[in-house]
Design a protein around this nucleic acid. Sequence first.
DNA 1: AAAAATAGTTGACTATATCAACTATTATTA
DNA 2: TAATAATAGTTGATATAGTCAACTATTTTT
Lengths: 149, 149
Amino acid sequence: MKQGLIDEVRAFNRFYTDIIGLLNRNFLDSPYSLAEIRVVYEIFHHKGIRASQIMEIMHIDKSYLSRILKKLEKDGLLLRERSEEDARAFLLSLTEKGNTEFQWLNKASNEQVTTLLAPLTEKKKETLVRHMQNIIRILTPENNRNENN
Amino acid sequence: MKQGLIDEVRAFNRFYTDIIGLLNRNFLDSPYSLAEIRVVYEIFHHKGIRASQIMEIMHIDKSYLSRILKKLEKDGLLLRERSEEDARAFLLSLTEKGNTEFQWLNKASNEQVTTLLAPLTEKKKETLVRHMQNIIRILTPENNRNENN
DNA sequence: AAAAATAGTTGACTATATCAACTATTATTA
DNA sequence: TAATAATAGTTGATATAGTCAACTATTTTT
């Protein structure tokens, strides 16, 4: 593999990490951490999900997740119901308040992105998004099976 | 601004953040955190840099940086010399050992990227890098002045 | 029926990061 | 030029993020 390619990927990573860091630092007026927000996001998008599934998706420790869920429940955002098929597990969903909070965070995140894109022309915005979509396509594992190098 | 664009950017961000998280989790056999490695990186690339400059580049608190520098110095990676122009400041550089450690981290990081790219064909690798370069170009502020939307 | 695996919780701990107060020096301004 | 403000960096106290090992309660495997 050409060293140049590796350097370019690392350069992109530094660049992108900096942007994200900047956005995240300026982001939150919410009392929730990025991990907590991500958990709320997953529950919103997968109503009835189990903690063990979130654990796998997010690659976080179950003890950490347990504490996050405890906080979300204490704050009244989260509903846990015992699963009927498996009495060890909970089925997770958002309460009314949890949904409201999610909408709020969603809106804040959109505004953040809008701010990031604001200096760009419409054409550049579209080009940017096309590049992003292509990167996702290239890096998605299913797209890279059974090919020779 | 079209909502679709915003959603696509957020989708990319989730995707990329997950990849980076995965790489970072699998990364380090080194006793240094990502922040510490980034500091070493900056000093390697800007010999004689001051702490206050690193602070600005990395957007981290001076007290946190101070502790990172203390650790790097204790471990024998870092050399601090009082600036002659400004007796408050230090000029930072890496010791022999610091350079060696940097080379090691650099190699480890390259291997990480190599692993990420391994499943791709050469053509895809090159396309990927081109997309990344374009994103950097589009999002670099200097490229977006004085244009109408 | 016993053993192993899974779901989740808790206590103790480490790592990461911030804030406010401090010393020492340099730059500004009255 | 003396007083004031600003900058460079350090430290103590504290907050936040995250891990590890041990535990209970179930379910699955043998």
